[in-house]
Design a protein around this nucleic acid. Structure first.
Lengths: 238, 238
DNA sequence: CTTCGATGTGTACGACGTATCTGTCGCGAT
DNA sequence: ATCGCGACAGATACGTCGTACACATCGAAG
């Protein structure tokens, strides 16, 4: 009923030609969606917003992704394309750079660590490639298949868990447009104070008073990671 | 305009008395919401659904929780009340039972592991208590505050990361009403086959063919955990 | 009896994901 | 040169969600 409304010819000619076709592609959709998420956070990534950004009708992207879940998978795969492991490293160097690079990736794209677990689970080509590279480094050790995989998974679990926490904190910081972690703590102080005033958390309180690396997230990440790697070394006999 | 519509007296008398007041409480809200999530998954937890289940108008719970985020925090705190560490354990036993109990909690409430990281981050009394208990076990070791916290955090990160993965898989299983993990694999087979046919993942393929504990998620969890604990032991000199 | 704060109700709005129908382009076969 | 078809994008609409806001109703204190 709206198509044959008063609009005729001239108006229709006025309308920018529906583009030389092939405006959309999974590539373009992925980069655009990632750009939105990088700039304004995951909650800004909306089917409608994506379409607007692409200069296209709300339903258009559905030709390429079956729904929002698909879009998220596409985004994950897209950013993981940047993650490659240099060859020729021993198992420990491999796992370590895997972990560190993944962390860097998640710091660059904070939304990555905020995705729901099932979006991160996705068996995506670029994620598979990363896994394969890490497994390749472990394959030389003559571990049985189960152990090899569980070593890989343990590192992956640590990285994701640690980054979930770290990027939730950093999201809190930028959400309130605070400049650094120290300001965050003074912001959160009332809540923390309330907890502490109950006197139920003496050791935690002691930590808050005496710790000197509360803001050194890299150190915290690396320390835990190195412990984990030490564990593999001792338990599996290098 | 709807209040003084035709409705008069008899209709108003018919209306069930607005209940003897104090129908709602944070407690009741939490248990009800948790029950919904346990039974039908996190996506079934809706403000409207919650209200219906409580026998109350959609906006009523807002007197007690400021929004959906608050509700999620309340739910997290509620289930963590069940998690206590027995006293008198050494540091390793403490961290291990902390991890294992947390895993059990997340298996009991699969939605826990599916929450967005910022919902899990919440500084909730019962979570604080758990942390305090774990830190207490570490406090006897004379580590500096930073190291102590990073040990605790590493275990927490591992647990959350591992359970994110595990419960995403188990959600996939129940989502398609498959009876066990083996059926899942035959269901996922086409996708996996497609990946394998590319020939780009030879080591992964080797794992799929020769691994015998692919479904033993407890073993996988415990193995990674024990490696991590070994790592603390060696790196920190017990 | 009146007044008041605490508590639950009713209604409504805007945003979101997405099903479906319709129009239009480009290309290969006739 | 034309026709028709399949791939592509537009337009519209529906149902559901979170939640803002104004109102009604209760219990108890004055």
């Amino acid at each position: 009923m709206a198509t044959d409304k008063g609009e005729s010819l001239w108006e229709r000619l006025e309308r920018p030609s529906p583009a030389p076709r092939q405006t959309l592609s999974p590539q373009r959709i992925a980069t655009t969606a990632v750009a939105i998420a990088d700039a304004e956070g995951l909650e800004a990534v909306t089917m409608r917003r994506l379409a607007t950004e692409l200069g296209v009708a709300p339903m258009a992207p559905y030709r390429y992704v079956s729904g929002k879940d698909d879009l998220l998978e596409l985004m994950v795969d897209h950013v993981y394309a940047d993650l490659r492991l240099p060859p020729g490293l021993d198992w420990r160097q491999s796992l370590r750079t895997l972990a560190v690079r993944t962390r860097e990736l998640m710091l660059q794209h904070r939304w990555l660590a905020q995705l729901s677990p099932q979006a991160k689970l996705s068996l995506t080509p670029n994620r598979m490639t990363v896994a394969e590279q890490a497994l390749a480094a472990l394959d030389r050790l003559d571990l049985d298949a189960d152990t090899m995989m569980s070593v890989f998974r343990a590192v992956d679990a640590y990285v994701h868990g640690a980054m979930s926490y770290e990027s939730a904190v950093s999201a809190l910081i930028s959400e309130q447009s605070l400049s650094d972690a120290h300001e965050l703590r003074t912001e959160l102080a009332p809540l923390m104070m309330w907890h502490m005033q109950t006197g139920r958390y003496p050791i935690f309180q002691h930590y808050l008073r005496t710790a000197t690396r509360k803001d050194d997230t890299s150190w915290q990440f690396d320390t835990g990671l190195d412990c984990l790697l030490d564990g593999f070394a001792t338990r599996l006999g290098i």
